[in-house]
Write a protein that binds this DNA or RNA. Structure first.
Length: 564
RNA sequence: GCCCGGGUAGCUCAGCCUGGAUAGAGCACUAGCCUUCUAAGCUAGGGGUCGCAGGUUCAAAUCCUGUUCCGGGCACCA
């Protein structure tokens, strides 16, 4: 569209003896702040100096040069220093409705992946306790990326890395937690973490337990496995409740042997060094990490010779890359530098590294200000508790309204939207009261607009008829402002979905979903559908809206409700 | 000390990549709207030195530099 405008302008500019390439002209073309100013606009400021005239006057003269607008435009006007282009809205309306009627749930989707496998690792919570909402951010973002990949024709394989070789589990072993249930784990963990912090001898005991596990001591193995299993089961059950599941669970402990091979390979690269305590480390001073760290090294073994986490992580990442070249991982912001270290090490070994999405923490709003959630300190809002609160609230609302609708679906929408509407790199300030709200910029609000739309179609006798009717036969009436806004917003969906895919930033589509729902609600109030003269067209428009919103929410991992 | 994020209305956030018309939403507050398709809604109103200071530009929330505050990280946690 911008190209077409640029073409018109190029011709007009030539008359004024200004010769600019079309691409440059197109780069000036913008979308005006309000619909009254048209659909596209061309600012003339930059021409003022060159033509020794006022920008507003130039706009008028250029407009004259263009002459009568071609068919694709309804009108071309000038407003001050701008030339404003109004596209033919009826054409747009017809086209969008026809596209969606044809593509339905595929509207906006492009088969970029062509069925290619993409390995996505997300969530990967330490198996030590019930997850808090901060951890849930990883899972919710990861799940959205999975949906995004599917939408663009990839075949996602979802991996969950289970950190079963860890100090945390060793601590729980020392605390005798292998007999505990999942619900009891958190308190035990907080208790032992406090004790270990205070006592060096207890910490030694913890590391001894870890060493025993790594060396394959049967007793230790059994205890570690029991705790890991209990935690993993508890965690995945909660995640399943919010509609997030996994294809493969990879256990860190099964990469201990491969880790040794990685160590050997690094040895052969000649970058591996041993410090005076006997630790093996990788010198990274010849990489971008120089200047970013006090000492650019990656420590790979303890002084007792046991491998550290990065070593196994390397082995694991190499394994994932062997599954598919396209790899995505979701990691906390605390792992930014570490991931760069990993990336440089993989590069040294001749491997690509996964695309990474880093997300910031969710802070807890308290009277004293925001503070970080910490499992270790017990300052958390547990995902499960928060979700249960959301479900209870949804049940209450549904009951009050005497409607039907699945409260779990409403709660999932509230939770996921709350997490996804912010850019991953933005810290989320989590306020319990605000998070429980279903008004305004929330998941339930968006679902509600869908349910309302559905209600119209359900009550309509023509809707069924419409679906069989040739879209081309529907008469497009003179469009009201709200109808135009809605059509334009719907038409943006493919672009927004694609941008989300490129940037791996689900907040783009989350914000779009909200704006779309908002415009629909405005349309709903200003335009009666049933029984109106424009009924056929409006029914088709409502149907188009529903598809756009449904596809949009699907990318966020949110299901729509026909009634709520 | 160094590296990476962030600072926009009382609060929570869009907008920044790719500079343009009066800086947008939501919550909270005020006033309206349910005998018409679901009031989880809509309409109207008040509320902003876009952290601060320079610079580039016809034009800066947006780009550049400096500075400040908050978060994350910088050798045996994972």
């Amino acid at each position: 569209m911008k190209d077409a405008i640029a073409k018109l302008l190029k011709k007009a500019l030539k008359q004024k003896k200004v010769d600019l390439p079309e691409e440059e002209i197109a780069s000036f073309v913008e979308i005006p702040p309000s619909a009254e100013l048209g659909d596209y606009a061309f600012p003339c400021f930059f021409l003022a100096e060159r033509l020794h005239d006022e920008a507003a006057q130039i706009a008028i003269e250029l407009r004259e040069e263009i002459g009568s607008p071609p068919e694709m435009f309804e009108d071309i006007q000038t407003k001050g220093p701008y030339i404003n282009f109004f596209i033919n809205r009826n054409n747009l309306a017809r086209q969008i409705i026809a596209d969606i009627a044809k593509e339905k749930d595929g509207f906006g989707s492009v088969n970029l992946g062509k069925g290619k496998k993409v390995v996505i690792e997300h969530t990967s919570i330490n198996p030590n306790a019930s997850p808090h909402v901060g951890r849930a951010r990883n899972a919710v973002i990861g799940d959205s990326i999975v949906n995004l990949m599917k939408f663009f024709g990839f075949k996602p394989e979802i991996h969950y890395y289970v950190n079963d070789v860890s100090k945390q589990i060793a601590m729980l072993v020392v605390a005798g937690a292998e007999r505990l249930s999942f619900d009891e784990m958190l308190n035990k963990y907080i208790e032992i973490a406090k004790k270990v912090e205070k006592s060096k001898t207890l910490e030694k005991k913890v590391f001894l337990e870890l060493q025993k596990f790594e060396n394959g001591d049967k007793e230790a193995l059994k205890k570690f496995e029991k705790i890991t299993k209990t935690c993993l089961k508890g965690q995945t059950e909660i995640l399943k409740k919010i509609g997030i599941s996994y294809d493969v669970f990879d256990f860190e402990s099964s990469y201990i042997d491969e880790a040794r091979d990685v160590l050997k390979k690094l040895q052969s690269k000649g970058k591996l060094k041993k410090d005076k305590n006997g630790r093996l480390y990788l010198d990274q001073s010849d990489t971008q990490l120089k200047g970013m760290m006090k000492s650019p090294v990656l420590v790979l073994t303890r002084s007792d010779g046991t491998g550290l986490y990065p070593l196994r992580d390397l082995a694991y990442t190499i394994y994932k890359i062997s599954l598919s070249k396209k790899n995505i991982i979701v990691l906390g912001e605390d792992q930014k530098l570490y991931f760069l270290q990993l990336k440089e090490t993989l590069k040294l070994l001749g491997f690509d590294s996964p695309e990474v999405i880093h997300y910031s923490f969710i802070l807890l709003n308290t009277k004293k200000g925001a503070k970080k959630m910490s499992t270790r300190k017990g300052d958390v809002v547990l995902l499960e508790d928060f979700f249960d609160d959301l479900v209870a609230k949804a049940k209450k609302e549904i009951k009050a309204r005497k409607t039907k609708g699945n409260p779990e679906t409403v709660a999932i929408a509230a939770l996921k939207y709350k997490i996804l509407k912010n850019s991953p790199n933005k810290i989320i300030n989590f306020d319990a009261n605000e998070a429980l709200s279903f008004d305004g910029d929330t998941g339930p609000y968006i679902l509600y607009s869908y349910a309302r739309a559905n209600s119209i179609l359900k009550k309509s006798k023509k809707a069924k008829l419409n679906s069989k009717l040739q879209i081309s036969k529907i008469e497009i009436p003179d469009l009201s402002d709200k109808e135009i806004e809605l059509i334009k917003k719907i038409s943006q969906f493919p672009r927004v979905a694609y941008d989300t895919f490129i940037t791996l930033n689900p907040s783009l589509i989350a914000n779009y979903s909200y704006q779309l729902a908002q415009i629909f609600n405005e349309f709903y109030h200003s335009c009666q559908v049933l029984g109106s003269h424009e009924e056929s067209f409006r029914l088709a428009l409502v149907d188009s809206f529903m598809h756009a919103l449904k596809n949009s929410l699907a990318l966020l991992g949110i299901e729509t409700l026909e009634e709520m």
